[in-house]
């Protein structure tokens, strides 16, 4: 048993799995950094991912092509998150309840859309998913090639988004405005920045990233849709953002940690480790709680976190 775990083959496949499974958490987490920095706690990411996963999948299944499916998924995420923006920014409702409502709605809608488009069937509808790209030279390097260079293109895209997100937040006017709106919306308002607009933008961008993460699950990780395909990844992404203290690079390490837990769980199951599979499946969820325990008190939340802004109120 132990020797099997320590074998090179096991380790490389574990690390490759870590990167692959980190992807659907990393994408929404990066998006939620924009959203949370702007002062919005969007727990509706879970539902947003689910909507994107079904709509993107349906696009591919109806012959739209993988890239089209990916783009439609992103768009679906952006559009669905507009609902959160309307509720939390325009109506200024309690963001926690709004998020819960979005998720219940998405659960129903996703199942409805799937049933509408695919009918009742014995076997789930399947598509051909994104395949690993072969990078000549790199992919063939022993071990390193397997771990880093045998992934599908969306995985690379997700990791490329890390420096991109950092750059937008730290080096552009837009990023600075987002931080200002999350820290001191009244000041942003008095400096001529539209709090409403920036928060809408931050939520919709977060939705687009979440959409990418959601559609990744159905057209790049799996090749089918199930109602539990997201399985809490949205909530995990929110905790990864808190764990990563709203920084893209730290969030990446958080996502990798979860990817590792998920991959380890899958590998150990395959190995027949003797630990019941159901207990291994708890691992990512236990880790989420552990991450929150570890990070919540230390994280410096934006001052206007989860607080609606109104010009008229003091």
């Amino acid at each position: 048993m132990l020797s099997e775990i320590l074998s090179i083959g096991f380790l490389t496949s574990l690390l490759a799995g870590t990167i692959r499974l980190a992807t659907p958490i990393l994408m929404p987490a990066l998006g939620q950094i924009y959203t949370q920095r702007a002062g919005i706690l969007n727990l509706g990411v879970e539902g947003t991912m689910l909507m994107a996963s079904i709509i993107g999948f349906a696009t591919v299944a109806s012959g739209g092509g993988l890239w089209m499916g990916f783009l439609v998924g992103i768009l679906a995420g952006a559009i669905f998150s507009l609902l959160m923006a309307w509720l939390s920014v325009t109506l200024r409702v309690n963001q926690v309840i709004a998020g819960i409502g979005m998720n219940v709605l998405a659960t129903g809608l996703a199942a409805y859309v799937y049933r509408l488009l695919f009918g009742i069937r014995a076997l789930p509808a399947k598509i051909t998913s994104f395949q690993a790209v072969d990078l000549p030279g790199l992919s063939d390097i022993p071990c390193i090639g397997t771990v880093f260079f045998q992934h599908n293109v969306l995985v690379y895209l997700a990791f490329a988004l890390v420096p991109f997100t950092w750059f937008v937040l730290e080096k552009t006017m837009f990023g600075l405005k987002i931080k200002m709106v999350g820290e001191h919306p009244r000041a942003a308002d008095s400096k001529g920045i539209s709090v409403t607009w920036i928060r809408y933008a931050a939520i919709v961008i977060g939705g687009a990233y979440a959409g990418a993460g959601g559609v990744f699950m159905t057209i790049a990780y799996l090749n089918m849709f199930t109602e539990s395909v997201i399985g809490g990844f949205g909530y995990i992404a929110v905790s990864v953002v808190i764990f990563g203290r709203f920084d893209p690079y730290k969030a990446m390490s958080g996502a990798l940690l979860f990817g590792f837990a998920s991959a380890l769980q899958v590998r150990l199951q395959a190995l027949g480790s003797g630990i019941p599979s159901q207990l291994l499946l708890m691992l990512p969820y236990l880790m989420t709680i552990a991450a929150l325990i570890f990070a919540s008190k230390k994280a410096e939340f934006p001052s206007a976190y989860a607080i609606p802004y109104s010009r008229m109120e003091r």
Binding site: L176, E183, R186, A187
Partner: peptide, 11 residues
């Protein structure tokens, strides 16, 4: 210049 300063403290 407002009575309550319009400055974001971590910036």
């Amino acid at each position: 210049v407002h009575q309550h300063f319009m400055l974001a403290r971590p910036l």
